[in-house]
Amino acid sequence: MDTGRSSKGNPVSTILDNPRFLHILRWIIAGIFLYAGIRKIQAPEAFADSIATFQLLPKELINLLALGLPPFEIIVAVLLLTDWKKREAAFSILVTCIIFTLALTQGLLRGLPIDCGCMGSGEPSTWHTGLSLTRDLLLLSTAWIVYRKS
């Protein structure tokens, strides 16, 4: 067996298994979620409005989500940076991204004017939604990597 090469023996795995690389990824994800959470906490009504544009949840649940999601994002971001709970945090982020992907996709399929509301409200548009979906899939893949390698 060769020493100095990862067991899978290809350069991508070498990068993916590099602890410093994972460290950086975790910081990036945590930064994004921290920023997003803080922006949302500052403007809860606007965030509730953007949740409403998805036309998925009944009005009883919309505000609860608007109030609960930003602290969730912040807590998860902080936990991701600890060694102690980073796997659980990565899992939570992964699940959040999956749910969000599904929500965005149903919105695109139904042709809804969705306002992502990810980092504060923007103007709803299909193009914007496509952009949000792309960003979200990137985040999802990153979260997947971090989760599997924790």
Binding site: A48, N63, G68, F72, E88
Partner: peptide
């Protein structure tokens, strides 16, 4: 762990809400 985090976050969010000048109503 995810469920516990979500629950904690919800409680925190509701608490923070009460401290606002114009708290968000529970129903949208």
């Amino acid at each position: 762990a995810l469920s516990m985090l979500a629950l904690t976050a919800l409680c925190l969010g509701l608490l923070l809400n009460q401290m606002r000048n114009h708290p968000l109503p529970l129903v949208y």
